[in-house]
Every structure is written in structure tokens, then in C-alpha cells.
């Protein structure tokens, strides 16, 4: 059986090229072969969201995605959204508001919220609940997770201002 596949993809911005058996699951590739253990596996059936990664920016269940599917694409894991020294603004908000207890659901929530805020920086309460409906948490009762996300939704994102487009805008303002 010609089951070995050569795949190349970008993992958290780094190019990766490797040979894998065709039936390898993405989560196993990332956790066991590459060794990034931040992503968690819980339900193993696309229900809980603990294993959420971003595939070209869109959230997916890595527990039920074939590793071959990332060939030629960009994968972002929790490690990829965590700054080298410290925490991202989303992670800080979770800590500040008590949006985690055991932490098992947290990487998945952080990834989902990352994807949410990227497409919709100021979601309404209903949009937050709708988007996070598929991330389960057994500890917090969600109230503090919701508060954390709401605080981010209300923030005038400073990174907005720092985005390349905004920088260009500012530059033009200064020079005109």
C-alpha cells in the first residue's frame, strides 16, 4: 500500500516538510511527531473544541482532520498565538477574568476566540455565544470566559492601529 505521503505546510509561520502515513491525524502529527503538546484532545469527536487549530485561519477540530489535509496550507496552534515571553491579549484576558480553571479547554477556547476576533473584532453578546457554542468547558460555568471575551470585544484593538494597513493610513496622515 502506497500510504506514505509527503506534505509541506507552514506551522505557526515555520515551514515544515515531512513524510507521514496517510491516515495520520493532524492532532497526532502536531503533538506526537512534532512535539507541540499545547493542543488537547478530549472528546475525539468534533464536539468539545479542545483540539481546535486554525487551518488557513479557520478553526477546525484537529482530532478529526487528516494531517495530509494541511499540505500546502498554514496551521496555527496555541503555541503559535502565544508570544515568546508572556501571553497574548486574549490569554491575558482569560487569566484576568478567571476564564480558566483546570485549563484543559483553554487552548481550544483561545484558538476559537482568536479566529472569532480576527473576522469580527467587536462581536455582540449573541455572536460570542453563537461562535463559542461548540467549545465545551466543564469547570468555569462559562460566565468568566464570556466576560473575558466580552472585554476583548469592547476593546479598541490597539493591534488594529498597528496593522500594516493602519500604519500606512497613519503614515499618510502624517505626511499629508
Amino acid at each position: 500500500m502506497t500510504n506514505v505521503q509527503l506534505i509541506s505546510f507552514s506551522l505557526n509561520g515555520q515551514p515544515v516538510e515531512m513524510e507521514i502515513p496517510g491516515h495520520t491525524l493532524l492532532i497526532d502529527l502536531i503533538r506526537d511527531r512534532i512535539g507541540l503538546k499545547g493542543t488537547k484532545r478530549s472528546c475525539d469527536m468534533e464536539v468539545c473544541g479542545a483540539c481546535t487549530m486554525l487551518l488557513d485561519g479557520d478553526p477546525i477540530s484537529s482530532c478529526t482532520t487528516l494531517a495530509v489535509d494541511v499540505d500546502g496550507k498554514e496551521i496555527t496552534t496555541i503555541e503559535g498565538v502565544t508570544p515568546p515571553n508572556g501571553l497574548s491579549r486574549i490569554q491575558k484576558a482569560f487569566v484576568l477574568h478567571g476564564g480558566l480553571q483546570c485549563g484543559f479547554c483553554t487552548p481550544g477556547f483561545i484558538m476559537a476566540v482568536t479566529a472569532l476576533l480576527k473576522t469580527n473584532p467587536h462581536p455582540t453578546d449573541a455572536e460570542i455565544r453563537h461562535y463559542l457554542h461548540g467549545n465545551l468547558c466543564r469547570c468555569t460555568g462559562y460566565t468568566k470566559i464570556f466576560e473575558a471575551v466580552k472585554s476583548l470585544a469592547a476593546e479598541q484593538v490597539s493591534e488594529d492601529a498597528a496593522s500594516p494597513a493602519a500604519r500606512r493610513r497613519n503614515f499618510r496622515l502624517e505626511t499629508s
Binding site: G98, C139, T140, Y142, K144
Partner: peptide, 12 residues
């Protein structure tokens, strides 16, 4: 924050 979280989790 932790104490509130314990109660909210229990209520959930």
C-alpha cells in the same frame, strides 16, 4: 475571581 469561578462552575 477564583472563588466566584468555583460557584459559577458548580451552578453550571
Amino acid at each position: 475571581v477564583a472563588a466566584e469561578g468555583q460557584d459559577e462552575g458548580a451552578a453550571a
